[in-house]
């Protein structure tokens, strides 16, 4: 598998305090990996660097061979809060990344529209975010994240003849489901895995929930210490399409025990 996104020797400090030190990680095409760490381990700081929102003191971020350190717009970013704009209809919220890249609003809507049924959001296009429940809003935010990840390629390729083909992209997901209640969360996990199978998205997922990370990812990096560094890496050797009931197996518990040890909390 080819390396899609690479972080090389990332060190970042705020106000003279080093938050993360010498972080190296690789995201391969089609992968879904998790960053697990206790709060304060620098997960969000690392995401700010990877998304280009801030420049690291040292190190590089490389996307498909091109350096994108400190340059936002190439990698998509999803936060815990859905951050849907209350004054825009759902369709305009979701297609906003395309508009920001220079597409006309009408064109952007045409691209986004067919994706609604695929994402289980049919019928919400013309509604305002305040009319949707928390789970639905998070799905909309995920669709926007996806469109943001592929927006650059849509604009490059032009819109004609591209309708059904899925373009690949990279997304950073910062605890996107942690604000949801337990039942909605487990429902959305199933939906999320199904979506990830269908669309060509590679993603890094931040979590402090070990179960969530184990259910969703191919690989888990454990981030710990002050300043935060990557101390362990786990490969989850079960196909992502067969994760239903995974959390009830002895295998799952075994992974969980190892990760707890790695976090230094057991």
């Amino acid at each position: 598998m080819e390396n899609l996104l690479e972080a090389k020797h990332i060190t970042k400090e705020y106000d003279g305090r080093v938050i993360i030190q010498d972080i190296n990680l690789i995201l391969r095409k089609g992968e879904l990996i998790s960053l697990l760490g206790l709060s304060g381990s620098g997960k969000t700081t690392l995401f700010h660097v990877l998304s280009g929102l801030t420049k690291p003191r040292e190190g590089q971020v490389i996307l498909e061979g091109n350096e994108i350190t400190g340059r936002p717009g190439a990698v998509s970013y999803m936060l815990q809060k859905d951050l849907l704009l209350p004054h825009k209809k759902v369709i305009d919220n979701v297609s906003l990344p395309l508009v920001l890249k220079g597409l006309h609003r009408k064109e952007a809507r045409q691209i986004a529209h067919p994706l609604f049924s695929e994402f289980g959001l049919e019928g919400t296009q013309g509604q305002y975010p305040s009319q949707l429940s928390g789970g639905m809003r998070q799905r909309c935010a995920f669709l926007r994240t996806y469109l943001s990840a592929v927006s650059g390629k849509y604009v490059q390729a032009g819109t004609r003849g591209q309708k059904q083909a899925h373009l690949h992209g990279v997304a950073l997901l910062d605890e996107p489901f942690s604000a949801l209640d337990t039942i909605t969360k487990s429902q959305i996990h199933g939906w999320f895995l199904e979506m990830m199978q269908r669309i060509d998205l590679s993603a890094i997922f931040i979590s402090h929930d070990i179960d969530e990370a184990l259910i969703l990812s191919d690989r888990i990096y454990v981030l710990s210490g002050t300043p935060g560094t990557i101390t362990h890496e786990f490969w989850i050797r079960r196909d992502r399409g067969a994760r239903k009931g995974f959390n009830l197996t002895p295998e799952f518990l075994d992974y969980k025990r190892q990760i707890l040890q790695a976090l230094g909390t057991s």
Binding site: S76, Y77, L79, K81, L83, L96, L100, S148
Partner: peptide, 12 residues
């Protein structure tokens, strides 16, 4: 919300 501005910046 500052996060909304961060998100917009991240979208370029």
């Amino acid at each position: 919300d500052e996060d909304a501005i961060d998100l917009m910046r991240a979208m370029g």
